[in-house]
Nucleic acid binder design. Structure first.
Lengths: 202, 202
DNA sequence: CTGCAACTTTGCAGACTCTGCAAGATCTCG
DNA sequence: CGAGATCTTGCAGAGTCTGCAAAGTTGCAG
């Protein structure tokens, strides 16, 4: 692929500028106390331009990067490339685990984002919706790897749902502790418990 | 508790009338093609009254009954009353399983509702959020039963998240098959797979 | 470096969602 | 029956989000 031109770079930059402006303002005042006009002004664009980048206000908090779809594709590719001989669930967990590094990298930004989400469940809703775009391809990839059928077998969808639960619980706990405990450590514990079928801890 | 008076009954009836009107119109035309005014007119109330019952338009599709909170309390109570000697996860699954009977009872209504939700993921978001109200009490109940700590242990939150995944996957599959396969059958299969730690099916 | 095509930003008009408030209607209960 | 509580309604207004067309930028070929 050719190197991205100025136009492309400007677009990514504008996206990020708006997203960070939204994150900052909403963290300070709360979602309801920040209007689209506020965010646009803070980011130095018109309100109309805001909506060229984000379909709804909430998305500005959630879509940190413009290349959301590409990232999902890459995650799927890495999942497919996991070594043979591993069951689909641990393979999927291992794949997601790799993505957590991105989050640890922008640690404070993500802690802020998660704090905001925790404070306003309507954002949580939106986060689920955003992931739903990559849902079907993921289910298809899981089906292929596990030799099941995405339409007829429960397994692929269930695996994705459970893995999502593991991820969400981990992120939420990590944020609740304000990052004090390493995200990977929490995630590993959660994944192990799920893989064991959630027996009562003794 | 005293028998509910006329006022109380009217309120429940209005709630249900609006909810069913919304379900019908949105099933026909799609969420975006139905305004609050449409729903209010169909239900025979003013638009302002609509908002006295539902905070946002989407809730009219999702809140079939006005006694949402009470039902959640009852579910928790039934969970706490599950026989001793069972681990928290199977006990929770058994509790949720009992609630599925309510859904099978209003079968067509629920199939419609799930079809609408499937067509518009933003509703799925909202459904998650609505459950978030009963989240903390549920987590607390799970913590108590499993002898863990809701704040410090990952187990209770994780259990709830995984069980939610099992439920959502089951409902979604049931709706995808348009009710052809019994919901309980699907749910049992999903619960068994999760309890086994999601091994690859052979 | 010019000029055109493609794309982005912007303002504006307008539909729609949702809230606060106060008046009027309806229910409860003594 | 009558006072008080509760519910419904209309209205004004803030805010979200979309379509459209004008104006500004960028990419690229000549």
């Amino acid at each position: 692929m050719p190197p991205p031109g100025l136009r492309e770079r400007k677009k990514l930059e504008t996206h990020r500028t708006i997203a960070l402006a939204a994150l900052r303002l909403i963290d300070e005042r709360g979602l309801d106390q920040v209007t689209v006009d506020d965010i646009a002004a803070e980011a130095g664009v018109s309100a109309r331009t805001f909506f060229n980048y984000f379909a709804v206000k909430e998305d500005a908090v959630l879509l940190a990067y413009a290349d959301h779809a590409e990232r999902a594709e890459q995650t799927i590719a890495r999942f497919v490339a996991q070594p043979d001989g591993i069951d689909a669930f641990p393979a999927f967990i291992a794949t997601v685990r790799e993505d957590l590094a991105d989050i640890e990298r922008d640690r404070d930004e993500w802690l802020t984002r998660l704090r905001i989400i925790h404070g306003d469940p309507s954002l949580l809703i939106r986060a689920t919706v955003l992931n739903s775009g990559s849902r079907d391809p993921m289910v298809a990839a899981i089906a292929q790897r596990s030799g099941t059928d995405a339409e007829n077998d429960l397994f692929p969808s269930l695996l994705l749902a459970v893995a999502g639960g593991v991820l969400n619980t981990s992120l939420s706990r990590w944020a609740a502790r304000n990052g004090a405990q390493p995200l990977l450590e929490i995630f590993d514990e959660a994944a192990a418990a799920a893989a064991a079928g959630l027996p009562d801890p003794r």
